[in-house]
Computed example of a mutant assay.
Amino acid sequence: MKTYSGPASDHFDGVRFFDPDGVAPRSLRDVLRWQFSGSRQRATWPLWVPSPHADVPPARVNGDTVRLSFVGHASWLIQTAGVNILVDPVWSMRVSPVAFAGPRRRNDPGIAFEALPNIDIVLVSHGHYDHLDLPTLSRLAATFAPRVITPLGNDITMRTGDPAIRAEAFDWHDRVELGNGLHVTLVATRHWSARGLFDRNRALWASFVLETPAGKIYIVCDSGYGEGAHFRRVAEAHGPIRLALLPIGAYEPRWFMRDQHMNPEDAVRALQDCGAEAALAHHHGTFQLTDEAIDAPVMALGEALDQAKIPRARFLALKPGQVFEI
């Protein structure tokens, strides 16, 4: 199995990546304890929960407007300055190493693949199957041949799966020109990565700061909260932030998930820490990865905003197919 090889750094020991401010991912023993605990309380999701929305995006969005369409889970289409960008695109029915088992979609993507405009750029945050979906990336490569910007090591996964995927790998703090005045910077986030049992943290993970004509968008695809240091550092290094995309789901049980996934209360703290003017929620309602109910994250988000005395309109939870513009 080919994996990343490069010089050691403050977050790479020469073999594996690590978060200097994070913790190691949970052990297999902890996974088994969670999965087979007699006290486990796993909510039952409906088999299918269709969104009432379906977006047909324009071919391009020019000028200083930014149009964001929620595809579902952590997938977004961002259109601005004549450039079309997909984030962690997943059009597959399952997010799993195999097509016949694993977490299954509970609603259609908010944009039908055939309705996508020409895609120029794809941002892939890390190697977990609900974010790096090889069948979708291969389909995008065959249809649009976009540039794929991803953290170190994930390019190997992509090119091994399909040499036609135009993957470009970067480290934390690298700033990448996307064209038409757009840039994206990879920033540290509290998470980890793996595709199987033997490649844990052999590829890097990241969040993104996208510079647009309407301001900077902080794209957090997966993250724990910890003490909030990652979010405050982004505010210090990249602020002001116009909009943050923040995950709110896949958080129960907390003893197992708190170091890798934020719950809604954490996400509200992350919004306060990064100082974004507004936020959009994601990573909920499409794939059941953990134990909470399908509607629990959105309900808890409203409660957390009320508790923090933040207007609910500042942090919205869209349904697949809904659109937000700045």
Rank of each mutant, 00 (worst) to 15 (best):
Y4R: 07
Y4D: 05
P7T: 10
A8H: 05
D10C: 01
V15R: 10
V15M: 03
F18P: 02
F18S: 07
F18T: 00
D19K: 03
P20S: 13
D21S: 05
G22P: 14
L28S: 00
S37L: 05
S37H: 00
S37T: 00
A43G: 03
P46N: 11
W48E: 10
P52D: 12
H53A: 12
A54T: 05
V56I: 14
V56M: 11
P57E: 09
P57L: 08
P58F: 06
R60V: 09
V61E: 14
N62Y: 13
V66A: 09
R67L: 15
F70P: 09
S75D: 14
L77M: 08
Q79M: 14
T80C: 15
G82T: 05
I85Q: 03
I85A: 09
V87R: 12
P89W: 14
M93V: 00
S96H: 10
P97Q: 08
P97G: 13
A99H: 12
R104W: 12
R104Q: 14
R106P: 09
N107V: 04
G110W: 14
G110R: 08
I111E: 14
E114D: 15
L116Y: 07
V122I: 06
L123V: 13
S125F: 11
S125N: 14
S125Q: 15
H126A: 04
G127F: 01
Y129R: 02
D133K: 02
L134F: 00
P135F: 05
P135L: 05
L140M: 08
L140N: 07
A142P: 04
A145W: 04
P146L: 03
I149G: 01
I156P: 00
I156D: 00
M158N: 09
R159K: 15
G161H: 10
D162A: 10
A164R: 12
R166A: 15
E168H: 09
D171Q: 04
H173I: 11
D174V: 00
L178C: 12
L178D: 13
G179H: 06
L182H: 11
L182G: 09
V184H: 02
V187P: 10
V187A: 03
W192A: 02
D199T: 00
N201K: 00
F208L: 07
L210W: 04
E211W: 04
G215C: 06
Y218D: 03
V220K: 07
C221Y: 02
D222C: 11
G228P: 08
V234F: 08
H238F: 10
I241Y: 02
R242Q: 15
L245V: 05
A250Q: 11
A250E: 02
E252W: 02
R254T: 08
R254V: 06
F256E: 03
M257T: 02
R258Q: 15
R258G: 04
E265T: 10
D266P: 11
D266H: 14
A267S: 15
R269S: 14
L271T: 05
Q272H: 07
C274T: 00
G275I: 01
A279E: 06
L280C: 03
H283A: 12
H284G: 00
L289M: 13
L289F: 09
L289G: 06
E292C: 00
A293V: 01
A293H: 02
A293I: 03
D295Y: 05
M299F: 03
G302P: 11
L305H: 12
D306Q: 15
D306T: 14
I310C: 08
P311K: 04
R312Y: 11
R312G: 15
F315K: 10
L318C: 13
P320M: 15
P320I: 14
Q322R: 09
Q322W: 12
Q322S: 11
